[in-house]
């Protein structure tokens, strides 16, 4: 842990009193020791923030769009989680999303935190649930999560976000063709960014054609650099939150998120156990029995 350590009660007091430094340290705890973070989170009251996941291929403008969204979020408290990939070989990571959002770095209403995905299943951070809960405990009105944009991260973000924005851009080759299976299903809103590129109109009509007939997914055109269209998007997010809050969708989403949070906790335990096992001369079945026994024993401790 970097510089001064914090004690558990200091964390709790700090988060309750909206101390920014405690938030920073708590998010580190989520990464370093998620089990302890979960114990602390249990003792904190949680606000229901609107959790918005933003996904789409690298380079479509997700980070720039978040910065433009923050510009229109005057008066609201917003936590931003940006995730970038770790190298599977060295474990190192270059986290560069912040570059696009630095104009907000000193805004006391906003808090931006970079995470490496650390090889997590699905491409989000292994501590994403704890980090999101931490922001909600801190009392954020909104939590925005930017995914890596490759692999399974799109699908994974729908396990935690109340609203998923899929961002496309016209300069990314044939985006529609490249659109992965599952992406249509998880999008609550589509954004075609880089509307300054004339080809965005072609992308728009193709996306319309593609989504015709299935559930109604609104499409927004934005220019994240000039902020054109961003205000409309922000208003749409707000009215969607109001809607899902009142029609029961939100509680469904929260139930799903809770289950996924629990699964990720169990998976962490399981990974640790499996890795610590001597596998010599033992059958898969025997190993399974041992591990389950071990899990139960641990629970009773």
């Amino acid at each position: 842990m970097s510089n001064t350590r914090m004690r558990e009660d200091e964390f709790l007091e700090g988060i309750k009193s909206h101390d920014r430094r405690s938030l920073a340290k708590m998010l580190s705890l989520c990464e370093k020791d998620p089990e302890t973070a979960n114990v602390l989170l249990d003792k904190l009251e949680k606000k229901t923030s609107h959790v918005v996941g933003i996904t789409g291929s690298p380079g479509v403008g997700k980070s720039t769009l978040i910065s433009a969204i923050l510009d229109k979020m005057n008066g609201k408290n917003v936590g931003v989680i940006v995730v970038d990939p770790s190298s599977p070989f060295t474990g190192g990571a270059l986290l560069g999303d912040r570059v696009r959002m630095q104009s907000h770095a000193t805004n006391e209403k906003f808090f931006i935190r970079s995470f490496a995905n650390r090889g997590a299943l699905g491409g989000l951070s292994p501590s994403i649930y704890e980090a999101c809960d931490t922001f909600e405990s801190f009392g954020m009105d909104n939590v925005i999560i930017e995914t890596v944009g490759v692999g399974q991260s799109e699908i994974d973000v729908s396990n935690i976000a109340d609203t998923v924005i899929v961002v496309l851009s016209p300069d990314n080759g044939d985006e529609i063709q490249m659109m992965k299976a599952g992406l249509m299903e998880i999008a609550d809103l589509f954004v075609i960014n880089k509307s300054d590129n004339p080809r965005s109109q072609i992308l728009l009509s193709r996306l319309r054609a593609m989504t015709a007939g299935s559930k109604e997914v609104p499409i927004y055109l934005t220019n994240a650099v000039t902020s054109e269209g961003v205000e409309r998007l922000v208003r749409a997010l707000d009215s969607r939150f109001f809607q899902i809050l009142s029609d029961g969708t939100l509680s469904q989403k929260r139930r799903k998120r809770l289950l996924n949070h629990v699964k990720s906790m169990i998976r962490r335990e399981l990974d640790r156990l499996v890795q610590s096992f001597e596998i010599d001369g033992i059958s898969p079945k025997e190993m399974r029995d041992h591990i389950i026994e071990e899990l139960c024993r641990k629970k009773r401790l």
């Binding site: 920073a24 060295t90 474990g91 912040r98 770095a105 935190r113």
Partner: peptide, 29 residues
């Protein structure tokens, strides 16, 4: 530093001392 296995956050150019200090504390580097 990334290739040496570290997680490296880059801020971009033309940062004020305030932006840098606040970012470093927020990211708890």
């Amino acid at each position: 530093l990334r290739d040496a296995g570290m997680e490296v956050i880059y801020t971009g150019i033309r940062q004020t001392p305030e932006q840098i200090a606040q970012s470093a504390v927020d990211e708890d580097v």
